[in-house]
């Protein structure tokens, strides 16, 4: 078992008075894919967004408990959200490339961080796009608008954009739910390539997707973590009745 890179202890989150996360204890080891599944409104996306402090953007959110990334408390007053988000990147449900060229999209993080060396930037663009398995499709029009790409290509460019700032953890919030099946399977293949080098946490509505790509799966319901285990145990031999009911499609 490799080292734990991210730990959450007794994590509560309130939207105003409403408790959306009711004491989550969940740890992530380095590398590999963890899928978060559960019915709509169960808190899985909310949980994911606490991991790189994206919930900070929503007014009236209160968070208690501890999240540690390599022994650094993400919610301590001295925590630097900008630095955190460089190390814990995020890909969203809706592909959100910036309205610039593909090339500019991928190097945006680096360029703003002050990197000017053209050769280095070129190398990063190629490496990131290759890692995101979209290089062959876009290499001949790197300087055209990323908005002209298909949804699936846009999403992979967004993944490349995150890879370019070399994070340790990549959070994905239902990255394929807005895409067609072919694009979805390309994204899945991309993630399977990346699982050896990155710690990947993915929220998905698609149970087959979780069973296909995840090493571990966590089942959320009503703001609570019901069960987390190796994916095959969750799907073949769940410990909790709720998990079994959900997996077999009895609700949700």
């Amino acid at each position: 078992m490799s080292e734990e890179i991210l730990t959450t202890q007794d994590l509560h989150l309130y939207y105003g008075d409403k408790e959306a996360l009711k004491g989550i204890n969940l740890d992530f080891t380095e590398k590999g894919i963890t899928a978060l599944i559960g019915p709509s409104g169960c808190g899985k996306s909310t949980y994911l967004r606490t991991l790189n402090r994206m919930n900070d953007l929503i007014p009236n959110v209160t968070i208690t408990g501890t999240i540690k990334f390599k022994d650094q408390d993400l919610y301590s007053p001295s925590a630097d959200t900008v630095q955190i988000r460089k190390e814990i990147g995020m890909v969203f449900q809706q592909p959100n490339p910036f309205p610039f060229s593909i090339y500019d999209n991928v190097i945006y993080g680096l360029r703003i961080a002050g990197e000017k060396d053209k050769e280095k930037l070129d190398a990063v663009v190629e490496k990131s796009l290759r890692q995101a398995a979209v290089w062959d499709e876009v290499k001949d029009h790197l300087h055209e608008s990323a908005l002209a790409l298909s949804g699936g290509q846009q999403q992979r460019v967004c993944i490349a954009r995150v890879l370019a700032v070399s994070p340790e953890i990549i959070l994905l919030d239902e990255p394929t739910s807005a895409l067609d099946p072919v694009s979805s399977s390309q994204i899945e293949a991309t993630l399977l390539n990346l699982r050896h080098d990155y710690t990947i946490i993915i929220v998905t509505h698609n149970l087959q997707q979780a069973s296909r790509i995840a090493d571990r799966t966590a089942f959320f319901m009503n703001g609570e973590l019901v069960e987390v285990d190796q994916t095959k145990n969750i799907f073949m031999n769940p410990a909790k009745k709720q998990t079994e009911d959900y997996i077999s499609g009895r609700f949700g």
């Binding site: 995020m90 809706q94 490339p97 910036f98 700032v165």
Partner: peptide, 13 residues
Amino acid sequence: SETQREGGLALGL
């Protein structure tokens, strides 16, 4: 779109 802001912030800007 709000997703552009999220995209920027999530990139560590």
